[in-house]
Amino acid sequence: MIHVENLTKYYAHLCAVDQINFDIQKGEILGLLGPNGAGKTTTLRMLTGYLQPSSGSINIKGLSIDKHVLKIKKLLGYLPESAPLYHDMLVFDYLKYVAAIREIDSDQKLPRIRQLADLCGINEVMSKPIGELSKGYKQRVGLAHAMMSDPEVLVLDEPTSGLDPNQIVEIRKIIKEIGKEKTIIISTHILSEAEATCDRIVIINQGKIVADGSTETLKQFASGKNIMHLCLQNADFKTVETNLSKLDGVESVTRITETDSELDVRLTCQSAGDLRPDVYRIIKDTDWILLDFHQETQTLENIFRKLTKES
C-alpha cells in the first residue's frame, strides 16, 4: 500500500529524517513512536505531500508522490498535530467547505457531515466558531475533517493529545473500528496508546528507524535477560546469595537494600526457561519469610527508553 524508500529531509543543514525505509500493508495500523524532535511529524508531512522530501521516494498505491501528488492527496486524510483550523469559521461551515474541496456530491454532503458529527461527537458545537472550541473539540473537528472523504489511508499526528481520558478511549475505539478496512498511520509519544491500538510499531530516533515490528517482537527483541525481584524477611544477604547462585541459569544476585528486618534482592537470569518455580522451592526450604516476589516485565516504556537513549 505504502512504500517508502531512503526518505530523507534536510532543514537547511539539519537532517530531520535520515534515509528511512518502510512498507505499510493495507489494513494495517502503524504507530510511529519517538522522542520529541525525532522526525515523526516531518515523516508524516512528507507522506501527505505537504513537505517535499530532500531525497528518496514515496509510493502510495503504486503512485509516486513526485508525479501524482494530487491523486495521492485524494487517497489520504490527514490530521496535523494540534489541528490548526480556521478560527473564524463555524464548525458546520468548515466541514461543508472541506466536503466541497473533497468533491463530495452535493446531495451526499449533509448526510456525510451529520454522520461524521455523530461519530466524532461534535453535534453540540456545530454552530460555534472553531476558535472558541476547547482543544479536545478542535481535535475532534480535525478528525472529522480527516475522515471526510472516507480516505483509504488515514494519517493522524498525535490524535489524542488534549483529549480527556473518556475521549481518548472513544477515539481509540474509532481508530480501531476504521482500521479494520483502512490503513492508518498514527504518531504518538504515548506508548500505552500505541500498544493498545497499533498492529505494528516503528520507533524513530534522530531521524532513523531504530525498531520496527509488532509489540511482541519488539519486546522479545529488547529483552535479553529475565529479572526477578525478591523481598525477604529473616534472611541475610550472604546465605541468600549462596543458596540462589546454586541454581542453573542464575547469572547474578545483587543486593538492593538491606535493613534489619527486610532484604531486597535482584536476580538476573538467562531468558531461556522460567526459574520462578525453582526459586520458590529454595525459599520454601528455608525459614525466610517471603514478602514480595515478582518478575520484571519488559514494557514498551523500557524498550523505548533503551532504544532512544543509547545514541
Partner: peptide, 14 residues
C-alpha cells in the same frame, strides 16, 4: 501563522 496551510495543502488542491 496558525498553521492551517498544512490542512489546506494536504487536501487535493494545488
Amino acid at each position: 501563522n496558525i498553521g492551517s496551510d498544512e490542512i489546506l495543502l494536504t487536501m487535493p488542491v494545488t
